[in-house]
Simulated assay, not measured.
Amino acid sequence: MSWVGRHAIAAGLATMAFTAVGCGSEGSEGAGANGESLCASDVLYEGRTYIKLSDAEVRVGQKLGTATTPPCRDTNDHVDDVPESSENAYAVSGISPDVVIAVGSSPEQAEPFRVLRSDKSVPPEVQELIDGS
């Protein structure tokens, strides 16, 4: 097999592996026992991607705007595709919205989300929330 052929096969396998992991992000909760989507814990707000911040207590502040959950097709069964949706985005007391927001239908229902950095590092403010919970 030629050098080009081997690299084409490797690229194809890498694409399949990437597709197989679905829309989930590192640090997100992933699919639950009830079959929820792998990417249901990602939201977009002001051009940034945020992932659900589990096990962190935050104080929700004023409404900032709207966060969007992108559409997701993390299964081969298109019946289970999750359409795009929107919810309210709220400030989190003491932390910049560039780092953490809360998302939900109301301040009482809002859950914290942290920004997803390209280097996958956890901002110090987020680590403090995680350690304090």
Rank of each mutant, 00 (worst) to 15 (best):
K63F: 01
D42L: 10
P107E: 13
Y90W: 09
P70Y: 06
I101M: 06
L38E: 03
V43K: 00
K52T: 07
A91C: 04
D81M: 10
P97H: 14
V58K: 12
Y50D: 03
A91H: 03
L53M: 05
P107I: 14
P70Q: 05
T68C: 09
S105Y: 05
P83W: 02
K52R: 10
D80W: 06
R48Y: 03
V60N: 06
V58Y: 11
Y90E: 06
T49D: 06
C72M: 05
E46N: 07
K52L: 12
S105N: 07
V60E: 08
L38Y: 05
L64K: 04
E46Y: 01
D42C: 07
A67G: 07
V82G: 01
T66D: 10
I101K: 02
G47H: 12
V103F: 01
V79K: 08
L53N: 02
D42E: 10
T49K: 09
P70C: 04
R59Y: 09
P83K: 00
D77M: 10
R73G: 12
A89W: 06
A67H: 06
N88S: 15
E57D: 14
D98W: 02
V79A: 11
E46I: 03
E87L: 14
V60G: 07
K63S: 05
S105I: 08
I101E: 01
A102F: 06
D81K: 05
R59S: 14
S106G: 10
C39S: 15
S85T: 09
V100A: 01
P107Q: 13
G61P: 13
V43E: 00
E46G: 01
E87G: 04
H78P: 05
V100R: 01
L64A: 11
S106T: 15
T75N: 07
Q62A: 12
V60Y: 06
L38F: 09
N76C: 08
A67E: 05
P107V: 14
T66P: 04
V43P: 00
R73C: 09
P71L: 07
G65K: 08
S105A: 10
E57N: 13
A89S: 11
A56F: 07
G65S: 09
C39Q: 11
G104P: 08
T69W: 12
P97D: 15
I51S: 15
D81L: 11
Q62I: 08
E46W: 01
I101W: 01
G104T: 12
A91Q: 06
P70R: 04
I101V: 15
P83T: 03
T68E: 14
E46S: 04
S93Y: 07
S85L: 03
C72I: 04
T68P: 06
T49Y: 04
V99A: 00
L53D: 02
D98V: 02
T69P: 02
G47L: 14
A56C: 14
T66Q: 12
A67P: 05
I101H: 03
S106K: 10
D98Y: 00
T69R: 11
V103L: 03
L44M: 05
E84G: 04
S86Q: 15
V92T: 13
D80F: 07
K63R: 09
C39F: 10
S105H: 07
V99C: 00
T69G: 09
S105T: 13
P107K: 12
E87D: 12
V60M: 08
T49G: 03
D42V: 07
T69F: 10
P107S: 12
V92Q: 10
P70F: 04
G47T: 14
V92G: 09
N76E: 14
I101S: 03
D98F: 00
S54C: 08
I51Y: 13
H78N: 12
